[in-house]
Computed example of a mutant assay.
Amino acid sequence: MNVIEDEAGWDIEPCDEIEPLVQAVGRMLRVFREAAGMRVADLAEAMRHGEDMIRKIERGVRIPRPEFLDKADQLLNAQGHLRAFMEDMRRARYPKKLRELTQLEERAVELLFYSSHNINGLLQTPEYMRKLFGMRQPPLSEEVVERETAARMVRKEIFGREPAPMLSFVQEQVTPERPIGGRMVLRRQLEHLLEVSELRNVSLQIMPTDLEEHAGGSGRIQVLKFADGTAIGRSPGAFSGRPVEHPRDLRILELRYGMIRAQALTPGESRELIERLLGRL
């Protein structure tokens, strides 16, 4: 079983708790296909998918996309029985811990992120995400890469949330410099960073490499604050890397993050740096 650590810092493990439901949906698809007098090849052609994918869905070894169920319901005259599972399959495509992380981010009114190795997951373009997942060792299957990319894209809906949360990002200078995916992928990623940095509720800062003093030596920091005054935070260099909620522990993470922000370039200076990097491509 693949274990993936999300860029926000929480470990994510694809779970099999929804396997019976996926298998039930697969059996239902087969029943409606056969009732419609269609072979696997016929349904595959009508759906514009490969026969192998249809067989995997019917065997319950592949989670169907919601839009697949929507179209299949219409083609097979399932009268809403397949469409009824669209939301379940949407949730099933994402690991349980990632669903929990997304729920935390949906509740947060302020989010603080310091990233030292890669561009933070909430700031990544789909192409950048795929390249990162594709470089994991041992290699992930194409299906896992696509699933994790789709799951991370769902998290990006936070930028369109109302009321908008406050988001603060500090990125090590090496993260926008490292050519993940090559020149064109990096170009689009840098353009996206500039676009996001223009949002009124977003602060994006770069920590320069040549800084003599650096409060981020302990690695990534993530703090999510909620409307009721509670919060949760995590850093691999503190509290054995486990998530913490006690005010005393959170104060340590916030103190470190505050120092990092003070040492980093201002948002304006950071934009200028990203523009210079973009101009070199």
Results as ranks from 00 to 15, higher is better:
residue 255 L to R: 14
residue 77 N to R: 12
residue 113 F to R: 13
residue 21 L to S: 15
residue 114 Y to G: 08
residue 94 Y to F: 02
residue 155 R to V: 03
residue 261 R to G: 08
residue 164 A to I: 00
residue 12 I to W: 04
residue 220 R to E: 15
residue 145 V to S: 07
residue 151 A to K: 08
residue 255 L to F: 13
residue 136 R to Y: 11
residue 56 K to M: 13
residue 254 E to W: 04
residue 116 S to T: 08
residue 235 S to G: 06
residue 161 R to G: 12
residue 274 I to Y: 06
residue 26 G to D: 00
residue 103 Q to D: 15
residue 177 E to W: 00
residue 208 P to G: 12
residue 36 A to H: 04
residue 76 L to N: 10
residue 214 H to I: 04
residue 234 R to L: 15
residue 67 E to F: 13
residue 78 A to N: 06
residue 260 I to W: 04
residue 186 L to Y: 03
residue 124 Q to I: 00
residue 134 G to T: 06
residue 180 I to N: 01
residue 173 Q to D: 12
residue 33 R to K: 11
residue 114 Y to E: 11
residue 221 I to H: 11
residue 155 R to H: 06
residue 29 L to D: 12
residue 224 L to H: 12
residue 63 I to C: 15
residue 200 R to N: 10
residue 94 Y to R: 12
residue 88 D to V: 00
residue 223 V to E: 10
residue 95 P to T: 10
residue 25 V to W: 01
residue 48 R to P: 02
residue 217 G to I: 12
residue 144 V to H: 09
residue 273 L to P: 03
residue 182 G to Q: 01
residue 113 F to S: 12
residue 85 F to T: 04
residue 196 V to W: 02
residue 274 I to C: 05
residue 90 R to A: 13
residue 217 G to K: 09
residue 239 F to S: 13
residue 3 V to R: 15
residue 259 M to S: 12
residue 227 A to F: 01
residue 272 E to W: 04
residue 91 R to P: 01
residue 212 E to D: 10
residue 184 M to Q: 14
residue 91 R to Y: 07
residue 101 L to G: 07
residue 30 R to V: 00
residue 129 M to K: 04
residue 216 G to Y: 10
residue 165 P to V: 11
residue 62 R to I: 00
residue 132 L to V: 15
residue 138 P to N: 12
residue 235 S to E: 12
residue 128 Y to S: 05
